[in-house]
Amino acid sequence: MSTVTSATAEESGRWEPVEDLPPSAKLVAKVLDYEETLTQSQLAEETLLPPRTVRYALSRLEAVDAVESRFSFSDARKRVYRLAI
């Protein structure tokens, strides 16, 4: 198996937890893959999805342990999300 094929197989396996999730959850996961950490409002802005849809997507991603969240250091009222896969 070549290294390119091996890398592709690893990448494919990495995304396995989100395969059966709605498109909005996949979009949120992909944006987090590029952006490292974002708040819900930043995710809504980046994805152009309504805030309610982002909340739903994050809950689905959390259910399959694909994202992690923590309180924001700059504003403890907000949570910051990052991809965990």
Score class of each variant (00 low, 15 high):
53 T>F: 01
2 S>Q: 01
25 A>W: 04
19 E>K: 08
85 I>T: 10
12 S>M: 14
73 F>C: 09
61 L>W: 08
13 G>D: 13
48 L>S: 13
68 E>S: 08
16 E>L: 10
7 A>W: 07
31 V>K: 04
48 L>D: 14
7 A>Q: 11
35 E>T: 06
15 W>A: 13
46 E>C: 06
36 E>R: 06
72 S>N: 15
48 L>W: 11
40 Q>M: 13
51 P>Q: 11
74 S>F: 05
54 V>S: 03
77 R>Q: 15
45 E>G: 05
72 S>G: 13
35 E>D: 11
27 L>C: 06
12 S>R: 15
80 V>C: 00
58 L>K: 01
2 S>E: 02
48 L>R: 11
78 K>C: 06
42 Q>M: 09
73 F>Q: 14
59 S>P: 00
45 E>D: 13
79 R>I: 01
52 R>D: 09
75 D>G: 09
40 Q>A: 14
52 R>G: 02
29 A>L: 09
36 E>W: 05
32 L>I: 02
46 E>S: 11
61 L>I: 09
14 R>A: 13
30 K>I: 09
57 A>H: 00
63 A>K: 03
72 S>T: 12
45 E>M: 03
62 E>C: 00
83 L>G: 01
36 E>F: 04
79 R>D: 10
36 E>M: 03
10 E>C: 11
35 E>S: 10
25 A>H: 04
24 S>K: 07
48 L>Y: 12
50 P>H: 10
44 A>N: 04
24 S>Q: 13
71 F>C: 10
12 S>T: 15
24 S>G: 08
50 P>R: 07
80 V>Q: 05
40 Q>F: 05
76 A>T: 15
56 Y>T: 06
82 R>I: 03
10 E>N: 13
36 E>I: 02
45 E>N: 08
63 A>R: 01
81 Y>E: 04
72 S>R: 12
50 P>D: 14
30 K>M: 12
76 A>I: 15
26 K>Y: 05
62 E>W: 00
76 A>C: 12
76 A>N: 14
1 M>K: 06
15 W>D: 14
80 V>R: 04
2 S>R: 00
78 K>H: 11
9 A>Q: 09
29 A>I: 01
85 I>K: 04
16 E>H: 07
63 A>N: 03
56 Y>K: 04
18 V>H: 03
24 S>D: 14
20 D>F: 11
39 T>Y: 09
79 R>T: 08
85 I>N: 09
62 E>F: 01
83 L>N: 04
7 A>I: 08
15 W>Q: 13
31 V>P: 01
75 D>A: 11
58 L>S: 01
32 L>W: 02
69 S>G: 03
27 L>G: 04
58 L>E: 04
8 T>A: 12
12 S>Y: 15
51 P>Y: 07
51 P>V: 07
34 Y>G: 08
58 L>P: 00
38 L>C: 08
3 T>R: 05
21 L>F: 06
26 K>P: 00
49 L>V: 02
59 S>F: 00
15 W>V: 12
74 S>M: 02
12 S>F: 15
